[in-house]
């Protein structure tokens, strides 16, 4: 599994973190000099868990109704914010500056 140190090497990485199934922040790293702290990361983790749960419900319903496959189980959720982007998979995530965000590289690193 890719460690947090490696996630912090993604372009524009501001923080890398782990979270529980309920969204509580676990191990994390924050780039020095930034505005993020553990409390805001903890809230962000809850946002990620909430949206992965919503997307899972949607994928389940969509696949039942349409007969299509390929969305379930949800592998990740990304929030594109005003300045920052957060990419999260099952229990880990990374925050990147919008201008440098490389979504594909982030998902690949989180899957590793």
């Amino acid at each position: 599994m890719t460690d947090l140190q490696t996630l912090m090497k993604l372009p524009g990485a501001l923080a890398a973190f782990e979270f529980s199934d309920r969204g509580e922040l676990g191990a994390h790293q924050i780039a020095p000099g930034g505005k993020l702290d553990a409390d805001s990361l903890d809230l962000l983790c809850h946002v990620c868990v909430a949206n992965i749960a919503i997307a899972t419900m949607q994928a389940r319903g969509w696949e039942k109704v349409t007969g299509a496959q390929g969305f379930y189980p949800i592998q990740g959720f990304t929030l594109v914010g005003f300045e920052w982007t957060a990419v999260a998979t099952e229990n880990r995530g990374v925050v990147m500056a919008n201008e440098q965000a490389d979504y594909e590289q982030a998902y690949a690193a989180l899957a590793g």
């Binding site: 505005k35 994928a59 592998q75 959720f77």
Partner: peptide, 12 residues
Amino acid sequence: GVAPAGGWVVRG
């Protein structure tokens, strides 16, 4: 830096 939200991505 996340607000206001601009968008989102869900990956299956």
